[in-house]
Design a protein around this nucleic acid. Structure first.
Lengths: 145, 145
DNA sequence: TTACTTATTTGTAATGATTACAATTATAAC
DNA sequence: GTTATAATTGTAATCATTACAAATAAGTAA
């Protein structure tokens, strides 16, 4: 569906700039999160990298994602209370989650809440907006029946 | 900290109005979520109701919360990817989560995103805004050291 | 009431994501 | 090359959540 490519050089710079030492594992985890734009889960990342890195451990995937989240490179989306999905932080955007098909849609939201550095005295590092409902696709299918 | 009281009559009406048959268990679960305004977890609800309802099962708490969430009476907050917290839906408000002390603060947010009934063609039932960062309290403590 | 049906609750076992941790391997410094 | 340090791996443990069947309660008709 959605696709894009990032050069290894770019990935390296991204990691270095955020204070994470590049390694084959880290480069590939980050690459997958960026290129596979559909908010992959830990397991999806792990399964997809396994052919390229047969010795890969799921713990490494967890560790890397945790690090990248703390450094503010990626976003951890706690959407269904089941498993966490990851999202590259490129520009602020919201998410729409369909409660019928569980698809996650990126939503371009032009709101000033993304500019807020502090709120009610608290210092803000990260802002997430999640809409839930029935997506266009599922609504169409419902009508057909 | 925060407190309030709701009469059993009010609770009954709330349940009936949303199509949930009242029972001792359901009344008390809802009462606790409303009165204990600090976003309780399943376990906290369970532990606190146990003295009053010694036969209570955690499964019942799960079932009730699931039902109430589906009926739109309460909100399920997937905040830390660890356990789900619950919140009575009174009026739209955002949440601030301190990554240092894990405290959840209610934030009164005057934004028009709460009015959106649909977005990019998708039908919206529920809107959640989560800010993450360092809360005022923790920032003060940091300064003291 | 009694017999019967349906809904609710309960308890236990299973699932599955995440974490802890020690052992192994790779990288960097000297 | 040897040593120290960091990263990775694999296994076992943890813990929230769910599945499911048995037990209980509530509702209904005779």
């Amino acid at each position: 569906m959605n696709e894009r490519t990032v050069s290894t050089e770019e990935l390296k710079n991204l990691l270095l700039a955020s204070g994470v030492k590049p390694s084959v594992q880290r480069l590939n985890v980050l690459r997958y999160v960026i290129e596979e734009m559909n908010h992959p889960s830990v397991d999806k990342i792990y399964q997809n990298l396994l052919p390229q890195i047969p010795t890969l451990s799921k713990t490494t995937v967890y560790n890397t994602l945790k690090q990248l989240t703390e450094k503010g490179v990626i976003n951890a989306l706690n959407i269904d209370g089941h498993e966490i999905k990851y999202d590259f932080i490129e520009h602020a955007h919201a998410h729409f989650i369909c409660t019928s098909c569980n698809q996650i849609y990126d939503i371009e939201l032009d709101s000033d809440i993304y500019q807020m550095q502090s709120i009610e005295g608290h210092q803000v590092f990260n802002t997430q907006v999640n809409f839930k409902g029935i997506c266009n696709n599922c609504k169409q299918k419902q009508k057909e029946n």
